[in-house]
Simulated scan of single mutants.
Amino acid sequence: MVRTGLEALADKTPDALKKARLGLLCNPASLTRTFEPAPELVQRVSDNALTCLFSPQHGFFAEKQDNMVESDHSVHPRLGLKVYSLYGEHRAPQSHMLENLDILLVDLWDVGCRVYTFFNTVLACMKQAARQGVAVWILDRPNPLGRGEEGPILPKDLASFVGPHPMPLRHGLTMGELGELVAFELKLDLDLKVIPLEGWQGEDFATTGQPWVMPSPNLPSFSSARVYPGQVLLEGVSLSEGRGTTRPFELFGAPGLDPWAVSEAVEKEALSGAFLRPVFFQPTFHKYQGEVCGGFQLQVTDPDRFKTLRASLAVLSAINRVHPGLCTLRQPPYEYEYEKRPLDLILGDRRAVDLLQKGTPALELEQAWQSGLADWLSRTEPFLMY
């Protein structure tokens, strides 16, 4: 049975925590297997040492639907504590937000993907905490996708809010491991502590025994999260990624797409461990609101064999061969970047984006990334905790 860092903190609370002034970065998915929310738990075990809260993208209660939909500062309706939004007027904590803290606790589910913005928010907190001499404790959680890495290493010229550090699109680390790695590589003068989780050996979320509570509105189930690191590419193109349906990122397509023709053109080896089920759907909001879209539901049949980025690249490549001009690149802005192409920021490889639009097969695109992934494994090995 896997126990998270939050649960470990509750089982054995360090004395230092009870003597410190605490802040907590969290959201609705920050809870125990018995559904006790992190803010209430921290108040209980620390003798009410919690002084304020911080929220990432989508808001403290994950109520904001889409990218670049900001949250205001607020007050927790039950605890009466100030909630500072780190996805609003500012996307990093300001000095006055940390000035009365000794320790900033972090308890967030990451979904194992560079584009998911929660780690960028954590890194912004780490940098500001280092400037002000505030300790950061990461209450670790499993990487829901388990170990495994895919995609190009992000070049520095494509750094953005969805690319805070040179890493692959799917990185394979926990939030704590990633924090330790990046703090080391950036040489942050930071008092960083990771409260490790227990009983996890790199498996995916399905084996953990933890409840899935959506960390953001469009990851309502683990099946959505499982395909997200590949399907997030759809945010950079004109296809619907299934927002406005009950199966975001699993359902995808566009008006005029022939799912049977596309299915026949997809590289079969790239879909190992998955099945493309032809569907038609009608989004209630977002892209193609009210229009019937042809497309697919991407259904994972064998998680051990499934490669999410490879599968998504293969489908996009096939669509571009079967329906030239149907899948176009979206234009900026995207996550506060107003000049660079969104898909360049998401995938992290301009040349691969251009080749993908020409219908280059996924297995061919992947070959250029293998040396970078080998180097990534060497960089991460000293920081693996599990």
Results as ranks from 00 to 15, higher is better:
6 L>F: 08
14 P>Y: 01
16 A>H: 13
19 K>I: 09
28 P>K: 06
39 P>H: 07
40 E>S: 07
44 R>T: 11
47 D>S: 10
48 N>W: 00
50 L>H: 08
55 S>V: 02
57 Q>K: 08
62 A>C: 09
70 E>I: 13
71 S>N: 10
74 S>R: 02
79 L>Y: 02
85 S>N: 13
88 G>W: 02
89 E>H: 08
91 R>V: 14
91 R>W: 07
100 N>L: 03
107 D>K: 10
108 L>R: 10
111 V>R: 06
111 V>F: 12
112 G>N: 05
121 T>Y: 00
121 T>Q: 04
123 L>D: 03
125 C>K: 09
128 Q>T: 12
130 A>G: 13
136 V>G: 05
136 V>L: 03
139 L>M: 11
142 P>A: 06
148 G>A: 03
155 P>D: 08
158 L>E: 00
158 L>Q: 11
165 H>Y: 05
166 P>W: 08
170 R>M: 09
175 M>R: 04
176 G>H: 04
178 L>V: 07
180 E>T: 04
181 L>K: 08
183 A>C: 11
185 E>D: 13
188 L>H: 06
191 D>L: 10
192 L>V: 09
194 V>Q: 14
198 E>V: 10
200 W>S: 07
201 Q>M: 12
202 G>S: 06
203 E>N: 01
204 D>I: 01
206 A>I: 03
213 V>I: 12
215 P>V: 03
217 P>E: 03
221 S>W: 01
222 F>A: 05
224 S>Q: 08
225 A>C: 10
228 Y>M: 09
230 G>A: 15
236 G>E: 13
236 G>Q: 14
237 V>Y: 04
238 S>K: 08
240 S>F: 04
241 E>A: 00
248 P>T: 15
253 G>H: 02
258 D>Q: 14
259 P>A: 12
261 A>F: 11
267 E>S: 12
273 G>K: 02
284 T>M: 14
285 F>W: 13
287 K>S: 10
287 K>Y: 05
290 G>S: 03
292 V>W: 12
299 Q>I: 15
300 V>I: 08
300 V>T: 04
300 V>R: 04
302 D>H: 06
303 P>L: 10
304 D>N: 15
309 L>R: 10
318 A>F: 02
325 G>T: 13
327 C>S: 02
339 E>N: 15
344 D>A: 09
345 L>T: 00
347 L>T: 02
348 G>H: 00
348 G>I: 00
355 L>W: 09
355 L>H: 03
359 G>L: 13
360 T>L: 09
361 P>G: 13
362 A>R: 03
367 Q>I: 12
371 S>T: 05
372 G>T: 04
377 L>H: 15
377 L>E: 15
383 F>D: 05
384 L>D: 08
385 M>V: 14
